[in-house]
Structures are given as structure tokens and as C-alpha cells.
Write a protein that binds this DNA or RNA. Structure first.
Length: 815
RNA sequence: GCCUGAGUGGCGGAAUUGGCUUUACGCGCACGACUCAAAAUCGUGUGGUCUCACGACCAUGUGGGUUCGACUCCCACCUCAGGCACCA
């Protein structure tokens, strides 16, 4: 018997699997399909890390399992290769992103092979391949043609380090998602995708998906749907009105002022509201001061309230109260209508503002009858639950009834409209960087003259796609808000596809999320040159049955790609409204010190090192044994020897002398194992599946076994440690790959125990365990229980008042 | 502040339609076998306190509650992790 040598056998089987093309998913297969997806990686110079490995190994095990269960499994792989690191590398080293990306892909491909991952390489895609981004551009144009891609100038998030605009989702804690730099606000012309048009559908669509509840909730909270009412307030002596959004119209009799944000259109010029000079001067100054304040600072809580009076008053139609109109930066221009009603008695922020400007505070809600004290301190401000007072026809109602009553009243009078507001903002879709898909539009001055919008933006015709990214010498972002592409005159200057006159290309590129917003669709039909994917092939493979990935994409990729899919579904271009039926997030793997793995900390453990030291099978299996797939885990190097030892034991066991017969213990244990492991794989509970296999070995190691039984065990082991399973199967005389075998069936009769252990409790405390035959009646059970000496001792002559009996489980004697 | 999760041995973690004396499986540790010796391997043990021992009692973040019986259900609180946040 040779020693277990992972390196040797793993290389052998990896070669053989590739040669036999065992993992290619066949479009024409008549088997039912399973589409297992992992988030395709960014081809980084650092190669695969633990997070990749965790997902890929899990996806691999479950793919191998479903293939054995008779499914045509698609487990594809590709490269999300546009993005900043390649570009920054290019700036530093002068290497073309195309070149460094190709190198990284080659390296990571080797790493994946070394792990024995059963990807279908015939479907490999790369987002930076013109054959791929041709369709990214084409899909963008579908949004454009449907009016869901638009150009606008506005204050957007700007990363001063990466020198590009960012979407809301890319700002974490006021910082750039990529580099951690504090984000600034910058006025820029940008392309937007109208994701807000799908806010409702994005919430609705989640209902029937088999996703973890927290992930759904996080998306729903991000979309932030709120039902409320827009109330119009007439400005006294002016024709204009101020519209305020509120979810608490019930408190309207307590309104004592109105606040609008400094960005509000009514403050764009002095002339709009005919504001008096002395007030306008202050407003101008205030606006300037606010513009210089960072977004992060401005939205800090407990910040001293500030503001300026406009000299104008708004009229509350309910009671003719004239409310002074203020400008203050605690009201944000992009939230609601950019104007709020000041109800200092029942909103903490309004109260703080009222204190600064010495505005009256009126109580309109009381907790109970005795709750009459004037509100003078912030902690007396009551924001929920209570009974209405000082509110005319609302008096005596609870706040919920009052909300309904007054809403109906205001709407009927024509003073307000019910409305729904969302926190979700439209998706800033242009970036001022080089390494991305060019936005396939052309700006034509001549056509602009004919265009009612005055823009003259013309879509590049389908037959001229892709608009290829030109090769340049300088990748540096300009920092002016213009993409480096703007400097490539030969590329920028083009002919207008509409009028044939001189025109300029759009020089912004798409964000890194563009290519990943549809890649799972392309896998269905990756080589199609006529359409982004053939509809029949989409129908064959979509939707994704199981999607592995990280929690960090909940409000990024997962939201964006659902939006694209829903839009394409509405356009009749895809066959499923939702792309991913089941989502399985993985926990972050921390370094051994409990900190996030990072090069600077020096706590990185690479898959390469594990494979080198213990072999791919042990590395895979340990990854699965570590803990629940979704749990955050601190890496621990020591434990892997346990898995290595287990594999070595299996090696010796299967290579050892085997007699012809299986003992009843062995047969039973195997049947139970088949059931348990199958259930655990389907439930993605690999850690307990591995434990069950170890337990199985402990039970059977000294028993007599047949080669047939060992072979069945190897089939169970195969999804986890495929190389050693294949090798041992061959040792036992197997001629074909285990991948072609079917998953063993268990015999239900073998699972049921004839003899069971009945727990005997006295007053709920377990005192004894007696062996009895299954399906025993209560009387017999009681007799058997009482026969136990231990039980007799604990009863010590006390009389039994009650007997609780759960067949095959326990009997509890209450004395 | 709000929304999610999670707190079980020295460590990673098992067990929740409430019930097989909490801690499966693995690591670590201790002792033993093999060996001249070591490694590897195999075997035994391993929550705490008290006890020579049989055994008793206490233990699933803390405090209550429901129940014949609670890691599991309910209430309050503490700690940690993730998300959101002057959101009207």
C-alpha cells in the first residue's frame, strides 16, 4: 500500500477530469437542471483568498452532489475584470490593464484547478472582453431607449482619491467603498439609471425568494419605503407654496415653524420668493457655509442646530397659524421634499431648533391624562403613542386614528396629497475613469438643435457595437470630472450616427457593477454573437437555483442585478422576473487574531499554502468543517490536522484487507450516514456532514466490511474530498469517475432502530436510560422503568402522581 | 437611536415542532501501548465545585416567568458583530 500522497493523486485526477470534460453542462440534456452560481471574482494580483475559497468549495460540493443525483448541473465561472485596482496598477507600473488582468486570470485559474473545483470552463466569461461588453453596452442602450437611463447635473458623491463619482450604495459610513477616503459632494453631469422606478418591484419580488430573512430586510430597509403625505403651505403675501413631506400629519396642530434645506429650489435665486435684501444676505452666507461643510459632518447627530430666518411666513390652513419660514441644514435637500414641518413638541430635532430660535412649543399628544406639563427638555419630547390634545377635531383620538382622520381631511380640502417616499436614489452610473465599459452614446451639436430636450444625445447603433475602449498611454484620472478618455481625440471625435455630421463620444465609463449586472444570464449562452443570450437557452437555465456570495453585496450587486433582471423581464428579454431563487451568504473569515485578514496585518492565510501543506482535499474539507457556512469565523490553523488524519485513516481503511461481509452495525451506520449527509448538503450544513462522516468511521473501523460498502462510503465522501475518493474507488476496482455514479440510496428500514433508549425522568430530571423495543405502550414502559434499580432508589417509596409518556423518547414520573 | 444576528468546555463548534443525565465531531491537553528513543499510529480520560470513594449539587451571557420538563418558548437587561441613521 502506498502512503496517502495528496499531491500525486490530486494532480492525476484534475488532469483526468479536464480530459473527460465531466463538468460541462449540456444545453441539450434531458435531465432536470440545477444552476449553481458563485460570485465571479475580480482577477486580483493577490489571487484567491479565503472568502473565495469558502464559496467556491461549497458550490463545488453541492454541484458534484446534484450531478450524482441525476441533474444537469451548470456551475460556471468568469471574471469581473473591470475596476480600479487594474487601472491603479497600470498608472503605477505602466502595464496595460488588459495585460495585467490576463496574467491574474491565468494565475487564479490555476489556483481553482488546484482546489479541484468542478467549474464548466467552456462557459468562461470575461467582462472586459469586447465580445462580452458589447452586450453590456447593448443592454445599457435598452435602458436608455426605455427612458430609464438619463443624464442630469446634480450634487453627487465624489471620491477625491479615486477621482470619480460614486453611487449612494458605494458610500459606506460617508467613505468610499473602495479606498476608504471621505467622500465629497460635487456638482457634476452624470448618467443615471432610474432604479427608483423599480423600488416597488424590488420590494415585492423578494417575497417568494428563498433568501435569508436578514438579507431581505436589509434590502427592504435600503429601499426605505415610507407612506406619508405632502402638505402644501401657502407663503403669506407670495404666490408660492412650500410642500412638506411628513409621516405624522396628526401632529399638525403643533406645528410652529417650517424649515427648508439650503439646496431647496425656492432658494436658488433671491427673486424666486422676493426675499428682502437683509434676509437674503444672511441666506447667501449660510448657503455658502453649508456648502463648505462635509456631508459626514453635516449629518452628525447631536450637532448644534443652526439656521436663518427668511422673513417669510407659511400659513397653516387648519388654524390660520402663521409659521415662520427658516433655512437650516438639518433638513437635507435630497430627502422627502427638502422641507419639513417644525413640530417641536414631538420631534427631537425640531425641539432643538426651536430652542435655538426661541420658537413656541405646543403639546398635541399626551401619554396619559396627567401628562400636561409644558415641554421644556429634549427628553420630554414624545415621538410615539398617545392621545391627541389641543388639536381641534382630533382631540381624544389615538395618534393612529388621528393620522388617518387628518390625512383624509387635508386631502379632501385639496391642501395635501398622499404620497410614498423611498430612501433609494437613482443609480449614478457614470465613472470618470479609464478601465470600464465606454457608455455607447454620441453627442451631436447639430442634432441637439432639433432635439426638444436640447441635448442631442444619440445612441450608437447596434451594428457599431462594441464601442471599444481605446488603448492609451496615460490612465491617470483627470480630477476635473472628466474621464481620461476625453483626451483621446482620435477616439472622441466621431461621426453622428444620426446625421453623419461631426460628433463627440461620451467619455464617461460604466461603474464596475455593470458587467456583473447580467453575467449570470450570459452563462446560459456565452458564445452567442447575435444576442446577449438566446431565449430558449435562458429558459433552459434560468433562474439561478442557488447563489453563493458575501453579505457585502446585499445593497450593491444583489440589488443592482435584480433591477437589471426585472427590467429585462419587463422588456420580454429574459424569462424570469427574479434572477436568484436561493441565496446563501458566507461569513467572513477572520485571521487567527480575530481581525480581518489583510496583508498589512500579516494574518493572511492563502489557499495555496493550505494545499501545499495538506492537499486540496484536506483544505476543502477543513474549510467546510470549520463551522456553519454563514457564520463569521476566526481562522485556526491547528484544526486542519484533524481532517488530514481523518483522510489518512480512510486511506488505510479502504486500502486494508476487506472481507466479504458487512456487519449489521456497519450497514446501519452507512444508511444513516447517506441520509444525514444528503440532507446536510442540501441544507448547506457541511460542518455537520463532515462530522457525521468522521463519526461513521469511528463506528465501523473495527467492524467487518465489504468493498461494496466502502465504495458507497466513497460516493458519500466524493463531493467533499473528490480526489481521494476517486483514487480509492480506483483501488477498489472502479473503472469510471465517481462523478458518473449515482448518489447511493439509503434503506429506510435500516434507519429505524428496533431497540431504542428510553429516558426515565423523575420530576423532570433524567435518572436512568433503559433499553426497550420500539413502539412500546405506556403501561409496559412504566413497568420497565420501575424495574430499574436506579429508578427505585430515587423514588424511595414516594407515590407516583402523574406519568408523562412520549413513545420512543421518554417517560417522566411525577412524584 | 433604529433594524438584523449571535452569546454553550481551554479552543472551533453539536443539539432548537421543548424531552436520549448539555457539550456530537474535531483541535488541544493528560496518561498508557508500540519504540533504544522520538515522530507517526493506536488506546483511555478530559465542564465546574465538594468527596478517598459511591455519589451529590451547580452549569448553555444576566435576572425573572411559563411547563412534568427550557440551550430551545415569553418578559426585562448586559455584551459582541453587521447594517441604517439630523430620513421628516
Amino acid at each position: 500500500m502506498d502512503r496517502y500522497n495528496p499531491k500525486k493523486i490530486e494532480a492525476k485526477w484534475q488532469k483526468r477530469w479536464a480530459k473527460e470534460q465531466l463538468f460541462f453542462a449540456k444545453d441539450e440534456s434531458s435531465k432536470p437542471k440545477k444552476y449553481i452560481l458563485i460570485e465571479f471574482p475580480y482577477p486580483s494580483g493577490d489571487g484567491l483568498h479565503m472568502g473565495h475559497m469558502r464559496s467556491y468549495v461549497a458550490g463545488d460540493a453541492i454541484s458534484r452532489y446534484w450531478r450524482m443525483r441525476g441533474y444537469e448541473v451548470m456551475y460556471p465561472i468568469g471574471w469581473d475584470a473591470f475596476g480600479l485596482p487594474a487601472e491603479n496598477y497600470a498608472i503605477k507600473h505602466g502595464v496595460q490593464p488588459k495585460v495585467s488582468t490576463a496574467k491574474n486570470i491565468k494565475h487564479m485559474h490555476q489556483q481553482m484547478d488546484a482546489l479541484g473545483l468542478s467549474f464548466d470552463w467552456s462557459r468562461e466569461v470575461n467582462t472586459t472582453d469586447p465580445e462580452y461588453y458589447k452586450w453590456t453596452q447593448w443592454l445599457f442602450l435598452q435602458f436608455y431607449k426605455a427612458g430609464l437611463a438619463y443624464e442630469a447635473t446634480g450634487l453627487i458623491n465624489w471620491c477625491p482619491k479615486d477621482k470619480t463619482g460614486l453611487a449612494n450604495e458605494e458610500v459606506i459610513d460617508g467613505k468610499c467603498e473602495r479606498c476608504g477616503t471621505v467622500v465629497e459632494k460635487k456638482e457634476l453631469r452624470q448618467w443615471y439609471l432610474k432604479i427608483t422606478a423599480y423600488a416597488e418591484k424590488l420590494i415585492e419580488g423578494l417575497k417568494d425568494l428563498d433568501w435569508p430573512e436578514p438579507v431581505k430586510i436589509q434590502q427592504i430597509n435600503w429601499i426605505g419605503k415610507k407612506e406619508g403625505i405632502n402638505i402644501d403651505y401657502q407663503i403669506a403675501d407670495r404666490p408660492e407654496k412650500v410642500t412638506c413631506f411628513t409621516t405624522r400629519p396628526d401632529t399638525n396642530f403643533g406645528a410652529t415653524f417650517i424649515v427648508i434645506g439650503p439646496e431647496h429650489p425656492l432658494l436658488a435665486r433671491q427673486s424666486v420668493l422676493q426675499i428682502e435684501d437683509k434676509h437674503w444676505q444672511q441666506i447667501e452666507n449660510y448657503k455658502q457655509k453649508v456648502a463648505q461643510t462635509g456631508e459626514l459632518e453635516r449629518t452628525m447627530e447631536n450637532r448644534q442646530k443652526s439656521g436663518v430666518f427668511t422673513g417669510l411666513y407659511c400659513v397653516n390652513n387648519l388654524n390660520d397659524y402663521h409659521m415662520p419660514l427658516y433655512v437650516a441644514d438639518y433638513v437635507l435637500g435630497n430627502v422627502g421634499t427638502g422641507a419639513v414641518i417644525g413640530v417641536p413638541g414631538h420631534d427631537k430635532r425640531d425641539f432643538e431648533f426651536a430652542k435655538v430660535f426661541d420658537l413656541p412649543v405646543i403639546r398635541v399628544v399626551q401619554k396619559d391624562k396627567n401628562d400636561n406639563d409644558p415641554i421644556t427638555e429634549p427628553d420630554q419630547v414624545q415621538e410615539d403613542e398617545g392621545i391627541m390634545v389641543n388639536s381641534d377635531f382630533l382631540d381624544g383620538m389615538d395618534i393612529h386614528t388621528a393620522t388617518k382622520e387628518i390625512s383624509n381631511h387635508l386631502v379632501k380640502k385639496g391642501w395635501a396629497q398622499k404620497t410614498i417616499s423611498y430612501k433609494l436614489r437613482d443609480w449614478v452610473f457614470s465613472r470618470q475613469r479609464y478601465w470600464g465599459e465606454p457608455i455607447p452614446l454620441v453627442h451631436c451639436e447639430k442634432c441637439a438643435l432639433q432635439d426638444p430636450s436640447g441635448r442631442g444625445t444619440v445612441a450608437v447603433p447596434d451594428e457599431d457595437l462594441p464601442v471599444k475602449l481605446p488603448e492609451v498611454d496615460k490612465y491617470e484620472p483627470t480630477g476635473t470630472g472628466e474621464s481620461p478618455l476625453a483626451a483621446v481625440e482620435k477616439w472622441v471625435n466621431t461621426k453622428c450616427p444620426q446625421c453623419d455630421g461631426p460628433a463627440k463620444r461620451e467619455t464617461d465609463t460604466m461603474p464596475q457593477w455593470a458587467g456583473s449586472s447580467w453575467y449570470w444570464l450570459r452563462y446560459s449562452d456565452p458564445h452567442n454573437k447575435k444576442v446577449f443570450a438566446d431565449k430558449e437557452k435562458l429558459a433552459k437555465w434560468q433562474p439561478v437555483d442557488l447563489y453563493f456570495g458575501g453579505m457585502e453585496h446585499t445593497t450593491l450587486h444583489l440589488l443592482y442585478s435584480r433591477f437589471w433582471n426585472q427590467f429585462l423581464y419587463d422588456q420580454g428579454l429574459v424569462t424570469q422576473p427574479e434572477p436568484y431563487l436561493r441565496r446563501q451568504p458566507h461569513g467572513i473569515i477572520l485571521g487567527e487574531d480575530g481581525e480581518k485578514m489583510s496583508k498589512s496585518r500579516g494574518n493572511v492565510v492563502s489557499p495555496d499554502a493550505l494545499i501545499e501543506k495538506h492537499g486540496a482535499d484536506a483544505a476543502r474539507m477543513y474549510q467546510m468543517f470549520l463551522g456553519p457556512h454563514e457564520a463569521m469565523i476566526s481562522w485556526n490553523d491547528r484544526g486542519i490536522v484533524g481532517v488530514s488524519r481523518f483522510l489518512e485513516k480512510i486511506w488505510r481503511w479502504a486500502n486494508g484487507p476487506t472481507q466479504g461481509t458487512d456487519s449489521p452495525t456497519v450497514t446501519k451506520a452507512l444508511n444513516k450516514l447517506i441520509k444525514k449527509v444528503g440532507e446536510d448538503i442540501e441544507g448547506i450544513q457541511f460542518n455537520t456532514a463532515v462530522a457525521a462522516m468522521m463519526d461513521f468511521y469511528n463506528q465501523v473501523k473495527n467492524e467487518s466490511v465489504s468493498p461494496t460498502l466502502i465504495k458507497k462510503f466513497l460516493q458519500v465522501l466524493y463531493p467533499f474530498a473528490p480526489h481521494i475518493a476517486e483514487e480509492l474507488n480506483e483501488v477498489l476496482g472502479g473503472k469510471t469517475s465517481l462523478q458518473l455514479e449515482t448518489w447511493p440510496e439509503f434503506d429506510p428500514a435500516q434507519i429505524i432502530d428496533q431497540q431504542i433508549k428510553l429516558v426515565v425522568q423523575i420530576n423532570g430530571k433524567t435518572r436512568a436510560v433503559v433499553e426497550v423495543v420500539a413502539d412500546l405502550g405506556e403501561a409496559e414502559a412504566k413497568t420497565l422503568a420501575l424495574a430499574s434499580a436506579v429508578v427505585q432508589k430515587h423514588l424511595a417509596g414516594q407515590s407516583i402522581r402523574q406519568v408523562i409518556y412520549r413513545p420512543d423518547r421518554l417517560i417522566n414520573l411525577v412524584v
